Amino acid sequence: MKMGKLKVYYGWSRIGNVRKKRALSVMFENDAQGCRSDRGQRCLRTIQDTVIERYQTDEEMADGKRQNRIFTEYSLFIDEKPINGSLERCLLVNSDADKNNISKAIRDKISDALREAFMLANPGYKEPGSQLELKFE
C-alpha cells in the first residue's frame, strides 16, 4: 500500500510575540500524522497564514523522513538581504528554490497566490525602486 503524501504549505509568517519580521514561510510536513492532527494544524496556524499548499515530491519526502520534528520551516525574510523589501525578488528566490522539484506552471501558481495574499495584507505596498525619485542638480 502506498503511504500518504506529505504536504508543503506556503504562506506569510504570522507576526506576533515570537515573530517580529515579515517573511515568506514554507512549511514541509515530516510526518503526516502529527502535521494533520488538530495540534499540528493549530501549530501551523500560529506560525503562518497559509496561502497555498501542494504535495511533496518523493525526493522532498525522503528528506522529511530524516527529521525528528513534525514540520521543517524555511523562511525568506522580506526586509533583509538579499531581498531588501522586494516582494518580486522574494517570490523569485522561492520559485528558484523549488525549480528542481516542481514545474514552472505550479511555481507560477504559487507565486501568484502568495503575491495576491501579500497585496491584500499590505495594501500600500510598493516595490522598492519603483518609488518616484527626485533628482536635484
Rank of each mutant, 00 (worst) to 15 (best):
Glu88Leu: 04
Glu88Ala: 05
Met61Ala: 07
Cys90Gly: 07
Val93Trp: 02
Glu88Ser: 06
Asn68Met: 06
Arg89Trp: 11
Leu91Trp: 01
Lys99Phe: 03
Ala62Val: 08
Ala97Pro: 04
Gln67Pro: 05
Arg89His: 11
Thr72Ile: 09
Gln67Trp: 08
Gln56Gly: 00
Asp96Phe: 14
Asn100Arg: 09
Ile78Met: 05
Asn100Phe: 07
Ser86Cys: 04
Glu59Gln: 13
Ala105Thr: 00
Asn68Val: 04
Ile102Cys: 01
Glu59Thr: 12
Asn94Gln: 15
Asn101Ser: 15
Ser95His: 11
Asp96Trp: 14
Ile102Asn: 00
Glu59Gly: 07
Leu92Asp: 12
Lys104Ala: 13
Ile78Asn: 02
Asn94Cys: 15
Leu76Trp: 09
Asn94Asp: 12
Ser103Val: 00
Cys90Gln: 06
Glu59Cys: 07
Thr57Ile: 10
Lys104Asn: 10
Ile83Asn: 02
Asp79Phe: 02
Gly85Ile: 06
Lys65Asn: 05
Val93Leu: 09
Leu76Cys: 04
Gln67Glu: 13
Asp63Tyr: 14
Lys104Cys: 08
Tyr74Ala: 10
Leu91Phe: 01
Val93Met: 04
Asn101Phe: 13
Ser95Asn: 15
Glu73Met: 07
Leu87Ile: 05
Ile83Asp: 01
Gln67Tyr: 08
Glu60Trp: 01
Ile70His: 09
Gln56Phe: 01
Asn100Thr: 06
Arg69Val: 15
Ala62Glu: 12
Asp63Glu: 13
Phe71Asp: 12
Lys104Pro: 12
Phe71Met: 11
Glu80Pro: 02
Ser103Glu: 15
Ala62Lys: 05
Ser95Leu: 11
Asp96Tyr: 15
Tyr74Pro: 00
Ile83Val: 06
Ile102Phe: 00
Ala105Tyr: 13
Leu91Ile: 03
Met61Gln: 08
Asn101Glu: 14
Asn84Ile: 02
Ser75Gly: 03
